[in-house]
């Protein structure tokens, strides 16, 4: 089976302005060599703290910003080498859902226009067919076709996110990249939106890339999980493996940060200490060592590679994975 989307050694550098007007520009390594693959119909969750490069990865995978290194392939073809027509097809088959439902919809367009626009851009259907499709989409995401003539500000956050989902579904994509799709919503609304995403994913057999800082959300939606730290993937594997038997201390710390209702389960793992280091001056060796409870001298000098640990397909970038409780 050929993969839908694959990233190989993807890098992104930003130029950060130095202190003064004439200070040299510093280089900020937002994404420092990420390998990912996503198979058709599969959900890959990417998790990590704010600033770890998750959203940059999303923008790189959709070709919104140029790569500084590595390559992204869609159905085996390099994104950078796509012809105009192939690019148009990629733009049709890969859609995005955004974090902030208050900024992801054009405030000057009616919902009917927002939902019809993807089809207009790709020249799909007649006007009447598009109108039918828009009605169908509204129903599908749990909104009323009567609300089509309204403007985005007349909806609540959860409803706006439903509109964003409907827009992504309008052109029947094969892959949806959701960048923190529920982080801006109330907890009760989060569950509804996640259920909706799960339903449409199953109905349409979509590939899903789900980016979040909230591991408890990923537990429900992902087949596989990749954990990012300072622009690198530090652990990846099946959702169950990664969440039940983390092989990287950072994953363990993230899991410990999830509030639990079961007092026996609390404080089993070490809570994360300190703040994420500045990506302008990443630590030497293993980027996690200043915050790691297991760190030894070796971690300060040698950066661990992402290698398979005791289960097939479960990889972690840690010298001392065996120290973590199984």
């Amino acid at each position: 089976m050929t993969d839908l989307l694959r990233a190989e050694g993807v890098e992104k550098q930003f130029a950060a302005r130095g202190g003064g007007m004439f200070a040299p520009h510093q280089r900020l390594m937002a994404v420092a060599g990420v390998d990912l693959e996503l198979n058709p119909g599969e959900t890959l969750g990417i998790a990590g703290e704010s600033g770890c490069g998750k959203s940059t990865v999303a923008r790189l995978l959709t070709g919104l910003i140029p790569l500084s290194g590595g390559r992204v392939t869609y159905q085996g073809r390099d994104l950078a080498a796509l012809s105009r027509a192939e690019m148009a097809l990629f733009r049709r088959e890969v859609q995005m859902i955004f974090q902030d439902p208050f900024s992801s919809l054009n405030p000057r367009m009616r919902v009917s226009e927002i939902l019809a626009e993807p089809m207009v851009i790709h020249g799909i259907g007649t006007e009447a067919q598009r109108r039918d499709r828009v009605d169908f989409l509204m129903n599908r995401v749990g909104l009323l076709p009567e609300q089509l003539s309204r403007f985005p500000h007349e909806f609540s956050g959860g409803q706006r996110q439903r509109i964003g989902i409907a827009r992504a579904l309008a052109v029947s994509p094969k892959l949806i990249i959701a960048d923190e799709p529920v982080s801006a919503l109330d907890l009760s609304i989060q569950a509804q939106i996640i259920n909706l995403l799960q339903e449409v994913k199953r109905e349409l057999g979509l590939g899903f890339l789900f980016i979040t800082h909230d591991l408890s959300v990923l537990r429900h939606v992902s087949d596989r999980i990749a954990i990012m730290y300072l622009g690198r993937i530090v652990e990846s594997g099946s959702a169950e493996e990664v969440l039940e038997h983390p092989r990287h201390p950072y994953t363990e710390a993230l899991l410990a940060a999830i509030p639990s209702v079961d007092p026996k389960k609390r404080r089993k793992h070490a809570a994360p200490k300190g703040e994420i280091p500045s990506p302008l001056a990443p630590p030497s060796g293993c980027p996690f060592h200043p915050r790691c409870p297991y760190a030894e001298e070796r971690c300060r000098v040698e950066r661990p590679d992402l290698v398979e640990k005791d289960r097939p397909g479960h990889r972690a970038a840690c010298h001392f994975s065996e120290k973590l409780p199984r």
Binding site: F98, E117, I121, R167
Partner: peptide, 13 residues
């Protein structure tokens, strides 16, 4: 803003 990015992802000119 995200709605402009959204339009780009959709392939708008």
């Amino acid at each position: 803003r995200d709605f402009v990015l959204a339009a780009r992802v959709l392939g708008a000119s």
